[in-house]
Design a protein around this nucleic acid. Structure first.
Lengths: 233, 233
DNA sequence: GCCAGCCGAGTGGTCCGACCACTACGCGTC
DNA sequence: GACGCGTAGTGGTCGGACCACTCGGCTGGC
């Protein structure tokens, strides 16, 4: 019938492209359920094993979601779904690449904080303050890190760009920060971090974008410079 | 013997984490060859099928590279390898998400262009000019788009941050731009785009970071505003 | 002695069929 | 009417078989 398959690349890659195209062209809507693995495989004329590999790849990328016993669904395709893999990049980057990543974070974080200063609501500001207080009230590094992350996430969210917030979240992923912090805290940078956070909060409360941008840039730049020095000598 | 497996999640997910951990902890170096699929599967006590799904997922993410008949290798783990999936995000984003993505691009592109203005060498500037000239010398939309992409990639590269360049490359991926351009060009924005590119080039040649930042921000912002208007009404 | 070509072992790529684990829905029971 | 059980159907896992390709060593001729 339709043996026009050009045979480009592996069959699994073709399957991946096929499903991506279905979504991009609107043949599959976010949240919609896909045909079963067995039918998808039959439809493309490939084995279920190959189709499963394609589905797994898209699942890991956050495009699809497989529910055991129920079916395969397209995710909401929101920023958070698709940008989760960004954390992997941060986890596997090393050396000079890590500094570059931190530079990207500095650029985005400073802009996001500036935007947040202009737009933040009272409720959002209260949430920021909650994490700031919790961060200063404990000595458990684990807990401090968690509230630190939430602190910045809340700010990024207040900037009104969920995509940017998701990227920043990935750039500040757990292992990434933990790795850098390990040696950083030992140099008494603890107090400095606390001061920087206070400065950021002050700028947000005053709705001062320029001050917020400067404070955020300095905050990230601090770590950036330290890391650069570590690599240099 | 060692039945301490906590059984969290699917076996494939565990395999993915296992391999990622091997790389993150330095047990696997960039470029190094992995054991065979069959051995990896045996080592983790899972079937080859499941292991293949894990490998496929990591391959798509740009962490691993499978060479038929030869073996599986860790990629160089350079920015380009890992951030290739970023293009998928751009391809699948729609509506408000697309505007947010463009906003992120505006922020990064303007900063990258400003950095490039300060650091660009004569050779790099010549490369930029080459694409600019080629872009203005043809009417083929396909070719224009290609040179447009190369124009910006060259600039991002001159900024000295390969990670940022890779991200911008993903944000400007083929289908992403083609999709937006389709309707954009019809409104006579062609001449305006050409003027904006000229302004960017002028700022680069003059080594004027502030002018470069403004020109790049305006260039991206132009498309951003148009897209925002499309969605609004 | 050297080089070209062949060839086989080993690798990833694909397929098949079976079974397990879980979910969802309907039917029967209370 | 609500509850609970059973069953059909789904994704998850497994094992084995075969194909397509790569690469190194071997063989043969020059």
């Amino acid at each position: 019938m339709d043996e026009a398959a050009p045979q480009k690349g592996t069959v699994t890659e073709r399957a991946i492209e096929e499903i991506k195209a279905m979504i991009a062209e609107g043949r599959l809507e976010p949240g919609q359920r896909l045909p079963t693995e067995r039918e998808l495989a039959a439809r493309l004329g490939i084995s279920r094993s190959s189709m499963r590999e394609a589905i797994r790849a898209l699942t890991v990328m956050g495009v699809l979601e497989a529910r055991h016993g129920s079916g395969i669904y397209v995710t909401a395709l929101e920023a958070g779904d698709l940008l989760e893999t960004f954390g992997v990049v941060a986890d596997l980057s090393r050396g000079p690449r890590l500094v570059e990543l931190l530079e990207v974070r500095r650029i985005l974080e400073s802009t996001a904080t500036a935007l947040a200063a202009a737009r933040i609501t009272a409720d959002q500001l209260a949430a920021v303050e909650k994490h700031l207080a919790a961060m200063n009230a404990t000595d458990d590094p684990e807990e401090i890190l968690a509230h630190d992350l939430a602190f910045h996430r809340e700010i990024a969210s207040a900037a009104g760009n969920e995509t940017m917030a998701a990227i920043l979240d990935g750039l500040s992923s757990r292992t990434f920060r933990a790795r850098v912090w390990r040696g950083y805290q030992e140099e008494g940078a603890f107090a400095r971090t606390r001061r920087e956070h206070a400065a950021i909060h002050r700028a947000l409360a005053a709705h001062d974008p320029e001050a917020a941008r400067a404070a955020a840039a300095a905050h990230v730049g601090e770590v950036e410079e330290w890391l650069r020095a570590q690599l240099g000598g």
